[in-house]
């Protein structure tokens, strides 16, 4: 079964890192996966998004037509991608800053104060809190794979952040 996930928010909120960690976890489980970033003029405070596909079979198109999961960290993300979600899709929204109300009847919403949760942890990271929450709610990948991926990706990028990543993930997972 092929699953498609769009992760969107402000540049600097870590949506691309979320996506690469998710793709890494899927690969650890032996699944096929693709990751496409929005690239170019994005910058901190601008808009960023990435598309991830996960499948047991070969992934032909890496382009998402209508996503099964939408992870939206700000209003702009909701505005831009809510309308393109597949019927029956799940949207996880960061209600700490999203003011817009869900507008589709054929999509399921989990509007959660993810930002507040991240701020409650020492060195809390919004994207990884959200990643933990997403993994728990969807079980699209196993928790162990998510943690291994987080360790791998953190070590590659900056080992000093590993503890913050793990703490954030666990907090989100328990939410």
């Amino acid at each position: 079964m092929e699953k498609s996930i769009i992760i969107a928010g402000y540049g600097g909120q870590g949506v691309l890192f979320f996506g690469t960690t998710l793709a890494q976890a899927a690969m650890i489980e032996g699944k096929n996966t693709t990751w496409i970033p929005s690239y170019g003029a994005e910058m901190r405070g601008g808009h960023a998004n990435c598309s991830v596909k996960i499948s047991d079979n070969e992934i032909a198109s890496p382009i998402i037509d209508n996503a099964d999961y939408g992870i939206f960290l700000n209003d702009k993300a909701m505005e831009k991608f809510e309308k393109t979600m597949a019927k029956g899709a799940l949207v996880i929204g960061n209600s700490s800053i999203i003011e817009k109300s869900p507008s589709r009847d054929d999509v399921n919403y989990l509007m959660v104060k993810l930002g507040d949760c991240a701020q409650g942890i020492e060195g809390g990271l919004l994207n990884i809190v959200t990643f933990g929450y997403f993994v728990n709610k969807t079980q699209i990948i196993k928790k162990e794979s998510a943690l291994s991926a987080l360790e791998f990706v953190s070590k590659k990028k900056n080992p000093a952040f590993l503890k913050r990543n793990i703490d954030s993930f666990e907090a989100g997972y328990k939410l």
């Binding site: 690469t20 793709a23 096929n32 996966t33 693709t34 990751w35 970033p37 690239y39 890496p62 382009i63």
Partner: peptide
Amino acid sequence: DGILGQMMEP
């Protein structure tokens, strides 16, 4: 093309 250059896969 830009997609192939920018995307990741195993």
